[in-house]
Design a protein around this nucleic acid. Structure first.
Length: 436
RNA sequence: GCCGUCCUAGCUCAGUUGGUGGAGCACUCGGCUGUUAACCGAGCGGUCGCCGGUUCGAGUCCGGCGGACGGCGCCA
């Protein structure tokens, strides 16, 4: 086995070496047989190719195995590369040897499937071209995020997953038994990041985040990956510009490495290319309301958060992601500070994606006013003693600092153009599903 | 938390005014030397989500329960 040089399907199709004998291993993707000829389409990680098995070209028992092997059987082939217009990829293998490594049982996923069934069979559906393409793009996106920050002098910094505090509101925490106490699964890395920027100054992280929101939408997961950054000496404007650059960088890396996958997902590459090269607009919440009320005939009261319908209507007016800043102070979390130039609003922002993918980034400058934060935490019923360590950060050499979190699955879903965020993560966890 | 849709073969679905449960796909067997999620013939395959009610008779009508999925709110 060690002496065999296994070719990948992509190599065979790119090299176009007619009459070359190659060894190939993979899985049966489609199979058809007709008397003394059988067609098996083989897949590997790089693509698919038709392998044509004719009786007489190989030992009879191997021919019978080729006819008998069901979809998803794993195989090792020896064959001769031939150009043939009748083959789906233009080239095919004339098979000389057909070794079935494992005869698959009847594969449960066939022509017609429902979304529920595919979620039940996720461990098998993950082999599909669709999910394989998305997972390759996700891998590119994750690599791009690391590269983006490291190239700019950021340190990777890890916060605990088990945390004693709340941050985004108590009802959305997953409680975990911790010896004789209880802790919560991390909702954000932010509070610990704020401790670290006083030494490392510029940091980032990407990791799992847990929100027990009772959301049943195509945009929500209970466990998702968030890519966060935090930096000392930066204000709101600085970090919104970094967020725009980051999203554009992720997109351009995917365009560079995953054209084949984007095509399989039927995404418009020119449109994505245009977005990667465009400036993203920044508008204020107040300006967003003007657009909604004047151009969309809506009647949104100042002070209400933008809901899904408002965000979707707003995005009718933009073909790239946009940044919306200065949401009403009252409806914002305790760590978002008042804007001194517009005291009814907070120094915060969301980035909203085109289409109906919603908020892909959320962030803010950080509140430095301990009294103000104590007041807000008390109002929302929290025990401020849990936050004393956090307030200490304001007592010993505090500086202006800002940060944001980017929803990895939302960005991947948007770039891939998929209709449900569940397909942007291998094994999705939602309020209604946590297996397989 | 609120609202909606659905539950019949392994999968996707039909099933009329209540009257002996169907199709396609998958699988098995047979046929076919160029198929394109092939085609032709045959076969295998059912606790109609569960419990109760009405009725001579319920997949179908009524009540309750359970499960799945989606929308809103909230958020990445």
């Amino acid at each position: 086995m060690s002496e065999v040089r296994w070719k990948k399907i992509e190599e065979i199709l790119d090299e176009k070496r007619t009459d070359e004998t190659v060894h190939l291993h993979g899985w049966i993707y489609r199979t058809r047989s007709s008397g003394n000829i059988a067609f098996t389409v083989i897949r590997d990680v790089t693509g698919t190719i038709q392998a044509t098995v004719k009786k007489g070209n190989l030992p009879d028992n191997e021919f019978e195995d080729a006819k008998k092997a069901l979809i998803e059987s794993s195989v090792e082939l020896k064959g001769i590369v031939k150009e043939d217009k009748r083959a789906p990829e233009g080239y095919e293998l004339q098979v000389k040897g057909f070794n079935v490594v494992n005869f698959a049982e009847p594969f449960p996923i066939v022509k017609d499937q429902s979304p529920e069934f595919l979620l039940d069979q996720r461990h098998l559906w993950i082999r599909s071209q669709k999910l394989t393409s998305i997972l390759k793009i996700r891998s590119t996106a994750v690599g791009a995020i690391h590269k983006f920050f490291r190239d700019r002098g950021y340190f990777e910094f890890d916060a605990p997953i088990l945390q004693p505090n709340q941050c985004e509101g108590g009802s959305t925490l997953f409680e975990v038994k911790y010896y004789d106490n209880k802790t919560y699964l991390s909702q954000t890395w932010q509070l610990y990041a704020e401790a670290a920027v006083f030494s490392l100054e510029k940091i980032y992280n990407m990791g799992p985040t847990f929100r027990a929101e009772r959301s049943k939408t195509s945009r929500h997961l209970s466990e998702f990956w968030m890519a966060e950054m935090e930096a000392a000496w930066m204000d709101l404007h600085n970090v919104t510009e970094i967020a725009k650059e980051e999203v554009k960088f992720i997109l351009s890396e995917v365009l560079k490495h995953n054209k084949r996958e984007l095509n399989l997902l039927k995404q418009d590459i020119n449109k994505l290319q245009h977005i990667a090269e465009s400036e993203f607009s920044t508008i204020t919440y107040t300006k967003a309301l003007e657009i909604l009320n004047e151009k969309e005939n809506m009647n949104v009261q100042w002070g209400k958060d933008l809901r899904t319908i408002e965000e979707n209507k707003l995005m009718n007016h933009f073909d790239t992601p946009i940044v919306v800043t200065n949401y009403p102070l009252e409806i914002m979390a305790f760590y978002k500070p008042k804007d001194p130039d517009d005291p009814k609003t907070a120094l915060c922002f969301d980035m909203i994606a085109p289409g109906e993918y919603g908020e892909i980034v959320g962030g803010s400058q950080r509140n430095l006013d301990v009294e103000d934060m104590e007041k807000k935490l008390k109002e929302s019923g929290e025990n401020i003693e849990n936050y004393e360590w956090y307030f200490d950060l304001r007592r010993y050499g505090s500086v202006p600092h800002s940060g944001y979190g980017l929803g990895v699955e939302r960005v991947v879903a948007w770039i891939c153009g998929i209709d449900n965020i569940k397909d942007a993560i291998p094994f999705p966890r939602t309020i209604l599903r946590f297996r397989p």
